[in-house]
Amino acid sequence: MPENDRITLRVARYRPEQEMEPTWQSYEVPLRKEWTVLDGLNHVKDHLDGTLSYRWSCRMGICGSCGMTVNGEPQLTCSAFLTDFAPGPVRVEPLANFPVVRDLVVEIDDFMNKLTEVKPWIIRAEDKPLDEGEFPQTPEEMDAYKQYSMCINCMLCYAACPVYALDPDFVGPAAIALAQRYNLDSRDEGSADRRDVLSSAAGVWACTLVGECTTACPKGVDPAGAIQRYKLTAATRSLKDLLWPWGQR
């Protein structure tokens, strides 16, 4: 690839003090084989237009800051390479389904609240004293929840989810997957505490298994699977309650 190759970034700008809705602005950046869309944005920020606002941090796909919509798909911009979009232009927009604060920055307060609601922490009837050592957990037991523990809270799944787009009350893929991460952890005893939120109308039952959350997930978490499995668990439980109402719990 010649050194002087360039590619155009069409970036959605939104400056709330100046405009009512987003507009497009184009920037031409070098097209290099190592460069990600994020590198392109950094080039814009550093050399072309310091007013462009976006979030980024680790640039290695683990901090979850830099999720945006690239050519219509939710992606981590630090993992999306410019050459894959050549000859361009590359459309860069903020993550869908979230309110846009400014340019490519979206408000994620809603997720932060929902995350807290599903109680993503170990709940136990009685804390085990540290002196008694660790909770033994075999690799098989760990395997039961490990996949769901890989969520980096990047919000791509919410951006991909049409149910969340239509019904902002939906607890959503990542939060449910993280609830399941604890439900399925052999150290946890809190599934009853999470049940109210998870099996509410805005919980798992709102999901129609579009499956796009799993497609969008950059870490292979499979939130759609987490939700389905919880539906099966909750439904089996209800059936038992119905058939043996006098049974224990």
């Binding site: 804390d127 540290l130 604890y182 952890d185």
Partner: peptide, 16 residues
């Protein structure tokens, strides 16, 4: 160890 009690998925030996 405290982190283990808080849920950190430390890698394990076969016996847990």
């Amino acid at each position: 160890l405290r982190l283990e009690h808080w849920g950190c998925p430390w890698s394990r030996q076969a016996d847990g």
